[in-house]
Measured scan of single mutants.
Amino acid sequence: MTYKLILNGKTLKGETTTEAVDAATAEKVFKQYANDNGVDGEWTYDDATKTFTVTE
Rank of each mutant, 00 (worst) to 15 (best):
25 T>D: 15
54 V>T: 03
18 T>Y: 10
8 N>Y: 06
2 T>R: 06
3 Y>A: 00
20 A>Q: 08
35 N>M: 11
12 L>E: 10
36 D>Q: 15
43 W>P: 00
39 V>M: 07
26 A>F: 00
14 G>H: 14
56 E>W: 09
16 T>I: 11
46 D>T: 07
35 N>G: 11
51 T>D: 01
13 K>F: 11
43 W>T: 01
21 V>E: 14
45 Y>I: 02
45 Y>L: 02
1 M>P: 08
23 A>R: 13
1 M>W: 12
20 A>H: 02
25 T>W: 09
16 T>L: 10
33 Y>D: 02
39 V>I: 13
28 K>C: 05
3 Y>E: 00
18 T>D: 03
41 G>Q: 02
56 E>H: 05
51 T>C: 04
13 K>D: 05
40 D>M: 12
29 V>R: 11
20 A>R: 03
1 M>L: 12
55 T>W: 08
31 K>T: 07
13 K>T: 10
32 Q>V: 11
9 G>F: 13
51 T>A: 04
45 Y>G: 00
33 Y>Q: 03
31 K>N: 04
28 K>N: 07
42 E>H: 10
15 E>G: 05
42 E>D: 12
40 D>C: 05
14 G>P: 05
40 D>T: 07
13 K>S: 11
28 K>H: 13
30 F>C: 02
47 D>G: 08
31 K>M: 10
8 N>Q: 12
38 G>H: 15
4 K>C: 04
21 V>I: 07
28 K>P: 03
36 D>N: 12
51 T>Y: 03
14 G>A: 14
23 A>S: 15
33 Y>L: 06
23 A>M: 14
43 W>A: 01
45 Y>C: 01
46 D>N: 10
45 Y>M: 02
46 D>F: 04
11 T>M: 14
22 D>K: 03
36 D>W: 07
29 V>K: 08
4 K>F: 07
35 N>I: 15
35 N>A: 12
31 K>I: 07
16 T>A: 14
45 Y>E: 00
48 A>W: 09
42 E>Q: 14
50 K>A: 08
28 K>T: 12
40 D>A: 13
35 N>D: 12
18 T>V: 11
31 K>E: 04
18 T>K: 04
41 G>A: 02
19 E>Y: 09
28 K>Q: 11
54 V>I: 09
5 L>R: 00
48 A>S: 15
11 T>H: 14
24 A>G: 09
20 A>V: 05
1 M>C: 05
40 D>K: 12
31 K>F: 07
38 G>Q: 09
33 Y>I: 10
16 T>K: 13
9 G>R: 04
13 K>N: 08
20 A>L: 03
13 K>V: 09
14 G>Y: 15
13 K>W: 13
36 D>I: 09
31 K>C: 04
37 N>C: 06
36 D>A: 10
51 T>M: 04
15 E>Y: 10
43 W>E: 00
27 E>A: 11
47 D>C: 05
41 G>C: 02
1 M>Q: 14
7 L>S: 03
23 A>L: 12
14 G>W: 12
3 Y>T: 00
35 N>F: 15
21 V>Q: 07
45 Y>F: 08
19 E>G: 06
24 A>F: 09
35 N>R: 10
8 N>P: 03
52 F>H: 02
52 F>N: 00
5 L>M: 05
39 V>P: 02
32 Q>Y: 06
39 V>W: 09
38 G>E: 11
23 A>K: 15
45 Y>D: 00
37 N>M: 10
10 K>F: 09
55 T>H: 11
13 K>R: 14
43 W>R: 00
32 Q>R: 12
13 K>I: 12
34 A>P: 00
38 G>F: 12
16 T>C: 06
54 V>C: 05
38 G>I: 04
26 A>Q: 01
41 G>T: 02
11 T>S: 10
35 N>Q: 11
24 A>W: 06
4 K>E: 03
31 K>D: 02
33 Y>H: 06
52 F>A: 00
47 D>A: 14
42 E>K: 14
14 G>M: 11
26 A>K: 01
48 A>I: 08
40 D>V: 13
24 A>K: 08
25 T>V: 09
17 T>I: 12
9 G>L: 15
10 K>W: 08
10 K>D: 07
23 A>Q: 09
8 N>M: 11
33 Y>K: 03
32 Q>L: 07
3 Y>D: 01
34 A>G: 04
7 L>I: 13
46 D>I: 05
49 T>P: 02
1 M>N: 13
15 E>P: 03
29 V>N: 05
15 E>A: 07
12 L>D: 06
40 D>W: 08
3 Y>N: 01
38 G>S: 08
31 K>L: 13
24 A>E: 14
9 G>H: 10
37 N>R: 15
36 D>T: 08
47 D>Y: 09
3 Y>P: 00
4 K>G: 03
32 Q>F: 06
19 E>I: 13
